[in-house]
Simulated scan of single mutants.
Amino acid sequence: MFGRIREDIRNVLTHDPAARNVFDVLTNYPGLQAIWWQRLTSRLWRWKLRWLARWLSGWVRWWTGVEIHPGAKIGRRVLIDHGMGVVIGETAEVGDDCTLYQGVTLGGTSLNQGKRHPTLGKGVVVGAGAKVLGSFFVGDGARIGSNAVVVREVPAGATVVGIPGKVLGADERKADGFQPYGVDTSMRDPLSPALASLLQHITATDARMRLLETTLRSNGIRLDCAELPSLDKRAFQPLLDEHDANGIDYFI
């Protein structure tokens, strides 16, 4: 037990530059205190003393601002930084060396019994305010940006941002995969390339239309655009149906 406590303290001193010394970590890190109490309530939960486990976890939530269900599985060297508003559900699993910031929710989207909360692999970083909802796996070394809402599986080493969460791709520049709050200054909006491509296509289409109009006029043909039928959005319904079936994004 004391070996695990020393390991947790060393982990905080390594990953939080605000941590000054061992006494500071012991007394002023509610996220760490919540994890230590959860080890006790988890044992009570396994011993079928479930009312007592939930009652104690309620007091720990009041004291630390962190709610960890006694049934959750928490790995080694997990850091909950700041901690206020963190919620970890009953069937959630948090792997070794994960870092969770304030306001993170590992929640369930099903009312059925059984596995309904996410599983975080090793070394996952979940930024402030992020919501990871559902029974799926977040791969080792993945990073979830602040305020992202993740509702589907995340590949190992990937970075996820936005609502709903969008995968930016794996980043191999950092071997340990750790980035504070799950973001860095080099990250780009995942929609930017799509929007840039769309604008290029519109520009090219306009140029071709002007060339076509000029060619028609040079041959004595005039086209009055006011006589063209208005756009019927029902023509796009097959694309919308395909979006619903396959999760393909279209810009209309």
Rank of each mutant, 00 (worst) to 15 (best):
G83Y: 02
L56D: 04
L111C: 02
R188Q: 15
L231N: 00
T91S: 04
G182M: 04
K174T: 10
R210Y: 07
T119K: 10
D171S: 00
E227N: 07
G134Y: 04
K174Y: 04
D232K: 00
L13Y: 03
E227H: 12
W55H: 13
R77C: 14
H69I: 07
D224T: 08
D176R: 14
Y101P: 12
F236W: 09
C225Q: 10
E227L: 02
H69W: 01
R210Q: 15
G247S: 06
V138D: 00
G134K: 02
A158Y: 01
V22P: 12
R152E: 07
V183M: 10
W36K: 12
P30N: 09
P229A: 04
G162W: 01
I202C: 09
F23T: 14
G162R: 10
V66H: 10
V126M: 02
T105C: 07
L228A: 04
G145E: 00
G114D: 04
D97E: 14
E213L: 14
T214W: 02
E67Q: 14
E93S: 06
N21K: 00
R143A: 01
R217K: 13
R217A: 13
G247W: 10
A34T: 07
R77I: 13
A72H: 02
S192W: 06
W59A: 14
K131M: 03
G31Y: 07
P30D: 10
S135I: 08
P238L: 03
R77G: 08
K48V: 13
I252L: 02
L100T: 09
H201C: 12
P164V: 07
S218W: 02
L211R: 15
W47L: 15
D244Q: 15
D224C: 08
Q237F: 09
V138I: 03
I88F: 12
H243V: 05
I221H: 14
V86D: 01
I163S: 05
C225W: 04
M1E: 05
I248F: 05
I80Y: 03
I88K: 06
D249R: 15
V60W: 09
V183E: 09
G89T: 12
T203E: 15
L133D: 07
W62R: 14
G220F: 06
R77Y: 12
R116Y: 08
R208A: 14
G89Q: 00
I163E: 03
A175S: 15
A156E: 13
C98D: 05
L32H: 04
G220Y: 05
V60D: 09
G182Q: 07
V160I: 15
G75S: 01
G129C: 06
K73S: 06
L198Q: 04
L44Y: 10
R20C: 11
I9F: 01
A235E: 04
L239T: 00
A170S: 09
V183W: 01
R222N: 12
H201V: 12
L216P: 10
N21Y: 05
W55T: 13
A53V: 07
V132N: 10
Q38S: 13
